[in-house]
């Protein structure tokens, strides 16, 4: 879940490091968790806050763009094309409204089901289902526009 939420917000190369930061931060703040049934939502909040902190750092955003030539050496032409396609899809999802972005990332990237997303994030089944459906609908439209 942490990985998916971060992927919805920060550049992919930064996600792994931030996952560690989130868990370290969660351990440090564990004493502040009053209701253990809200653990998922609490961890999600820490994750979102750290993602926001990432963008508050003094490093200009322009310097954090992924290098265009990244990993060219390790991938063949077809794999490179698939990678570019995946990056393009990821960019479209990241441009969606936040309420759709996260559930879609957890469903399509992390492979979680709707009930699992609801259980981890603390949202209701209905809310997750609506956001998944609307988000998917919007994603189809955006991808259609992109390909057109």
């Amino acid at each position: 879940m942490v990985h998916g939420i971060l992927l919805a917000r920060v550049p992919p190369p930064e996600v792994d490091d931030l996952v560690q930061e989130v868990f370290l931060s969660a351990l440090r703040q564990l004493h502040a968790l009053r209701d253990s049934s809200r653990f998922g939502a609490w961890l999600g909040t820490i994750t979102r806050n750290l993602a926001n902190d990432y963008f508050r750092k003094a490093i200009p955003v322009s310097k954090l763009t992924e290098p265009v030539t990244e990993n060219h050496a390790k991938t063949g032409a077809s794999d490179h094309a698939a990678e570019q396609e995946a990056k393009a899809i990821l960019a479209v999802i990241r441009a969606l409204p936040e309420s759709y972005r996260e559930p879609l990332m957890l469903r399509l990237v992390e492979g979680m089901t709707g009930p699992e997303i609801a259980a981890r994030t603390g949202l209701t089944h209905g809310s997750v289902r609506v956001n998944l459906c609307r988000g998917m609908q919007l994603l189809r439209e955006k991808l259609g526009e992109t390909s057109a």
Partner: peptide
Amino acid sequence: LEAALGRYRHNQPAPAFDRLREIRP
């Protein structure tokens, strides 16, 4: 979409925080 985006999936084990919920209702 799942096949394309699967390359970004996290594959490391996560800490077992869930135990917390079982013991602290």
